[in-house]
Nucleic acid binder design. Sequence first.
DNA 1: GTCTATATTCAGATAGAC
DNA 2: GTCTATCTGAATATAGAC
Lengths: 213, 213
Amino acid sequence: MATEQSKSDISRTRILDAAAKTFRQKGYAATTLNEIAKVADMQAGSLYYHFNSKDELLEEVLDIGINRVHEAVEESQENMPAGASQRERIRAAVDAHLTTLLKHGDYTSASISIFAQIPEEIRQRQIPKRDAFSALWRRILGRAQKAGALRNDVNLSMVRLLLLGALNWSVEWHKPGKTSIHAMTEHVCLMLLDGISTEEGIRGAEVEREEVA
Amino acid sequence: MATEQSKSDISRTRILDAAAKTFRQKGYAATTLNEIAKVADMQAGSLYYHFNSKDELLEEVLDIGINRVHEAVEESQENMPAGASQRERIRAAVDAHLTTLLKHGDYTSASISIFAQIPEEIRQRQIPKRDAFSALWRRILGRAQKAGALRNDVNLSMVRLLLLGALNWSVEWHKPGKTSIHAMTEHVCLMLLDGISTEEGIRGAEVEREEVA
DNA sequence: GTCTATATTCAGATAGAC
DNA sequence: GTCTATCTGAATATAGAC
């Protein structure tokens, strides 16, 4: 049965959880197997029954992290009602991305924040997975543009990179309980889609107040 | 004279440059003094004539990094003509931030991308400096809102965090020569201030095309 | 499966010659 | 000021008992 877990599986999961948590907090190189073992309530040597090396452990954490965000955003799109507006679709994607990142987040946060400092070989294997996730976002934005909901005169690649930056960077400042994810989603959509300037600012046609004040 | 540099000063700078470059590429813990020395064209032991420890070296790199961005954004505001619009002021700040980050960038990029993984003690000392920089951005956006250029119904703190995220994350994807910093600035301002939805999308009042298509 | 003990490697840091 | 040589501690990984 799928619900049956051997003792090995349980330990494995406990180790992975501990690794994700520690990698995320301290980074890859600064994390010792001793620390991971301590968090997982074991001795360092025991980890090697489940994983062949620190790198193998790292890679599995990263894989889980990227997969979770990818799946969450993908499902958010599949679950949209047929008549949903492009605005609603984008909002759902943003919300899924942020929720997965910030709520169930050690794996996903780790996969984002330590990516730059992992061993070259592992990074190379992660790149295609990140590219696939990028492509998902590219499709979402591209479809919205094609449907006439997004301006045609913007570079969607740059928009996507800036948007994902704003979303991903939230792992550096978000404090659970302090800012609601829903409010974050609303602000992201407001900025991305409507902008936060006042009406007189929008077209830039009228003299702005401070020029006469 | 200020222009006279002792041999010691020159070596010191060479070491700092090497450290910033290596810290940025590999992260803090994964960077060895041996590597820094190699890049600086010295032996590892020689570094200790100039710095007492790896941490001292790190801290100086971080200080230089945060100071440079702070000063650049600050100067961008001081240099604005008196009649400049709030939109122009914000654009100048974004441009200064991105240019410093991406063009003269090992110190500034390092100070951003490795912050999460440095020793706790050093991080604590960096926080007030980062807060001061945050406050500068808070003033810029707050002034624009007070002047009536930004909507009153947005949470400016959240806007600032999202905006700085989009800007800071660019160190992870920007390839010099591939995307112009000017184009990035324009896209950031377009998203932040105007939004990228089409006119019928802006107020959300009209039926969006894809609902009937 | 997990433990303890340990081999091995390599990092940061120091000392003294030049 | 920079070198070479070396100390010391700690980390990954292994081996064998239980």
